[in-house]
Simulated assay, not measured.
Amino acid sequence: MEFAVSREGTTLVTLHEGTDTTACNAAAAELTANLESLAAEGTIANWAIDDATVYEHPTAPFDPYTIAVAFTVTVVVDADDPAAATEIGASAIDDALERADVDAVSYTSSPAASAP
C-alpha cells in the first residue's frame, strides 16, 4: 500500500549577503534549488519552504549570515501499514536531504504517514 510521509525541519544556510532580507531570500532560493532537484529526480513527492529567518548576524563586515530555513518534505513509500511507512519514509527523507547536501537539518516534527 502507498503512503505519503511528511516531515518538517529546519536547516542552517551560511552565506554572504548585504542585508537580512537578501540573506533570507538567498538562503530560501538555495534550499529551493536543492529541493526542486530532488523533486525532478522523483526522490521526493512534494516540498515547501515555510520560513527563512536570520539565525546569526555577521559579527564583522565580511562575515557571513547564518539563516534558518524551515521546510516541509513529503515522500511516497510502499509499506504494509502506517507504522512501517513512517519508518521507511523517515529514512528516505534523511537520505534524500543528505544526497542533496542539505546540512545541519533539525527536524521539528515527527514523520507522519497518510494515504496519498
Rank of each mutant, 00 (worst) to 15 (best):
R7P: 00
D101I: 13
L12C: 04
A40H: 15
A115T: 15
S6T: 01
T43V: 14
A29T: 13
A85K: 01
A112Y: 09
G42I: 07
A48D: 12
A79T: 00
A113M: 03
T53F: 15
S110H: 15
W47R: 00
A84W: 05
A100E: 06
A96M: 13
A52V: 04
I88V: 07
A23C: 06
A84R: 11
H16F: 14
D50Y: 04
A29W: 12
A70H: 00
T21E: 15
A39Q: 14
Y107Q: 09
A104P: 04
A68P: 01
A115K: 10
T108E: 08
A85F: 03
D20P: 01
A48C: 03
A83S: 11
A29V: 07
F62N: 14
I49Q: 11
D50E: 08
A23K: 04
T22I: 05
R7S: 01
L15W: 03
M1L: 14
E87N: 07
S6M: 01
Y65E: 03
I49W: 14
H57W: 08
A45K: 10
N46L: 00
A26W: 12
H57K: 09
S109R: 07
T86S: 09
L12Q: 09
E41T: 12
A27V: 01
C24E: 15
P116L: 11
T66L: 07
S37F: 02
D94Y: 10
T108W: 10
A29R: 13
A112P: 00
T10Q: 15
T43Y: 12
S106M: 14
V54Y: 13
D51L: 05
T19E: 11
V77K: 01
E98W: 11
T66F: 05
P64S: 03
E36L: 08
V5Y: 12
T19H: 08
S110Q: 15
G89N: 03
A115E: 15
E87Y: 06
F3G: 00
F62V: 11
A84P: 04
